[in-house]
Amino acid sequence: MGPIGIFDSGYGGLTVFKEISHTLPQYDYIYFGDNARVPYGTRSYDTVYHYTMECVNHLFDLGCHLVILACNTASAKALRTIQQKDLPKRTDLRNVLGVIRPTTEIIDRFTISNHVGILATSGTVNSASYVLEIHKFFPQIKVYQEACPMWVPLVENNEMDSPGARYFVKQHIDRLLQQSTEIDAVILACTHYPLLLPTIKEFMPKGVQVISQGSIVAKSLADYLYRHKEIEALCTKNGARQFFTTENVENFKEKASIFYGLPVEAAQFDLTHKIP
């Protein structure tokens, strides 16, 4: 038995972890942030896969039977390979889940016009993962994407309320909505973006729903554990929280508290020497 693992390339996954730990507080969790190698969004599929799998294996080594990729780039570029190539080779019971499917499989609840917008990193947009997943469930929905390369640096440098943030948020919302006047639902397809939510809502027209992933992923995880008793039985329940980072611990603690909403204690784990 062991905790549930939560992985992200940086800090954004803490917004998802915050919702998960609120919805399912009884479980033990380990959060792993590969902050030393962020950003993942600009890296190749192969690199993202290797980095992600390395961190997932570390979480497995720490006793996690279930790992959530609380990172859109890792979910887009690595999850399918991990599920199809790596997990079947294991003789023990392990699983890895992502954040894209929980959102896309219920997107029809948020749109009347069947025109949906995606705000994401360049890596997630280029992967077309949201387009493919939405069309898999709802072929009638038209999907429009806009990459927002400046949003993550603004959040990670605590510039969410700056004039620069307002400029780039408005710029990318305008570019997205120019693609279709019928968009009535927009997915924030990056876990950093909820910290920009007040500014996003300021520039988003009334009648357009803005969808954050955290609560959706948390509810999906609760449903998964209910349906998969064999995995749920392996998840320990002491309400414990642990945080690991590949970066400087003090830097991580300072920034992580902004995303998680509470002070955190963390330990460093060095992975950078293992992959060129």
Rank of each mutant, 00 (worst) to 15 (best):
Tyr45Gln: 11
Leu176Ile: 11
Thr47Ala: 14
His273Lys: 15
Glu247Pro: 00
Asn238Trp: 02
Pro139Asp: 06
Lys219Cys: 04
Asn95Asp: 14
Phe243Gly: 04
Ile106Tyr: 03
Gly2Met: 09
Ala266His: 07
Thr91Pro: 00
Lys18Trp: 05
Glu250Met: 11
Leu119Arg: 02
Asp61His: 12
Thr191Met: 09
Leu93Ser: 09
Ala70Lys: 04
Ile100Cys: 09
Arg80Leu: 14
Thr73Cys: 09
Asn126Ile: 09
Glu159Asn: 12
Ala267Trp: 00
Tyr167Ser: 02
Phe243Met: 11
Val116Gln: 05
Gly2Leu: 11
Val152Leu: 06
Thr103Val: 15
Arg43Val: 07
His65Met: 01
Ile82Thr: 08
Leu24Asn: 08
Glu182Val: 00
Val152Lys: 02
Asp270Tyr: 10
Tyr167Leu: 14
Val208Ile: 15
Asp184Pro: 11
Phe32Tyr: 13
Asn251Pro: 00
Asp161Gly: 02
Asn238Lys: 13
Phe269Leu: 09
His115Met: 02
Ile231Asp: 01
Asp174Ser: 13
Lys253Thr: 14
Tyr31Lys: 04
Gly261Tyr: 05
Phe32Thr: 08
Ile100Lys: 03
Leu93Cys: 08
Val56Ala: 05
Arg90Ser: 10
Pro3Glu: 07
Asp8Ser: 06
Arg94Ser: 10
Pro139Glu: 05
Lys201Gln: 15
Ala233Asn: 10
Lys170Trp: 02
Lys85Trp: 10
Arg43Trp: 08
Cys71Asp: 12
Lys136Leu: 03
